[in-house]
């Protein structure tokens, strides 16, 4: 065995140690991007200075929501749309934990949209990895708030007409401290972006634009074609004009990726602790 192979094997073992492999095979389709994103999350945990025991994963409902169940961490798989407020409560009460929400577009931006925008506004000190596969995969492929206009889904058989969130533009406008977009084809960049999230005090967000077999099937894109589609269309531009990075099904339109926003607005949790120290220090209280 060469030295390189040995290093690789050790690394794989380390990543496996973070997975509940006894629960495999997982539920995700072959060709789905969620597993790659989860591996990047595991890799980022291993590279972080934070002890594994302090990393917490919170997921909602849906394909991506199953992530919490496959990580060998304290993992919470909660109600549909509600991982963010659960994570906010956990992080506020336990500032020592590194809390990451790992869920999908339907969960976080559709049913959970209200919690999402207010968590960004408060600048809650949580990390959010959102798999955007444009659809509700687990329930058969209905449209979500990120389905591109014109796309066919189980509930938009004639093409989607509602309108689509430009996710990085919205999250940046709301004031998040970190906003990035990557795909499972960019695993190194994605891992580094997740490592970056861990260092941020405040709301840190990554949209992982992911191939989905259910979505592809309904739009006549075979799995392999979909990956080629991603490779062909992806453009890295960290300084992109975010008003122009909305996703469409047009094969000639780029999928713009990058680490778009890095800010240092103090988090709600930091501001609260400062306030608490002032109140307790000033009043001479016991408690």
């Amino acid at each position: 065995m060469s030295r390189l192979e040995l290093v690789k094997r050790t690394r794989t073992d380390e990543i496996r140690s973070l997975l509940r492999t006894e629960r495999f095979p997982h539920i995700w389709c072959p060709g789905c991007g969620i597993g790659v994103a989860l591996k990047c999350y595991a890799e980022a945990i291993l590279k972080s200075d934070i002890p594994v025991e302090k990393h917490i994963i919170v997921s909602g409902i849906g394909c991506s929501g199953r992530a919490a169940g496959y990580m060998r961490l304290d993992g919470y798989h909660v109600t549909h749309g509600r991982p963010i407020p659960f994570a906010v409560g956990l992080k506020t009460a336990r500032p020592d934990l590194e809390v990451t929400v790992f869920s999908g577009d339907g969960d976080l931006l559709t049913i959970g949209g209200n919690h999402f925008i207010h968590a960004v506004r408060r600048n809650d000190d949580i990390n959010v990895i959102m798999i955007n596969n444009f659809t509700y995969g687990m329930t058969g492929g209905q449209y979500s708030a990120t389905t591109p206009n014109g796309a066919r889904t189980l509930t938009s058989p004639y093409g989607f007409i509602e309108g689509t969130f430009n996710v990085p533009y919205m999250v940046a406008a709301l004031g998040a401290n970190f906003v990035a977009r990557w795909t499972p084809l960019h695993d190194r960049e994605l891992t580094r972006a997740i490592q970056e999230m861990f260092k941020i005090d405040g709301f840190a967000f990554i949209e992982v634009v992911s191939p989905c077999l259910i979505f592809g099937e309904m739009n006549n894109i075979p799995p392999l074609e979909m990956l080629k589609h991603f490779r062909k269309r992806c453009v890295i531009d960290h300084d992109a004009d975010l008003s122009k990075v909305g996703l469409s099904t047009d094969p000639d339109q780029p999928i713009v990726l990058g680490n778009f926003v890095r800010r240092d607005r103090p988090s709600y949790q930091t501001r609260y602790r400062e306030l608490m120290e002032k109140i307790r220090g000033g009043g001479g209280g016991r408690g």
Binding site: V58, Y76, V78, T79, R82, I84, P85, F86, A87, V88, G89, L90, K91, T92, A93, R94, L97, N114, H115, H118, Y268, Y272, L275, M276, I279, R280, G283, G285, G287
Partner: peptide, 28 residues
């Protein structure tokens, strides 16, 4: 804040109870 605890007004009652469950699972 006077007794070293945490208060948050959430965006709705669903968020409120979920934040409570998050804190409780943190042992608080």
């Amino acid at each position: 804040p006077q007794v070293g605890g945490y208060f948050i007004q959430m965006e709705d009652e669903i968020g409120s109870i979920m934040a409570v469950l998050g804190a409780a699972n943190g042992g608080v």
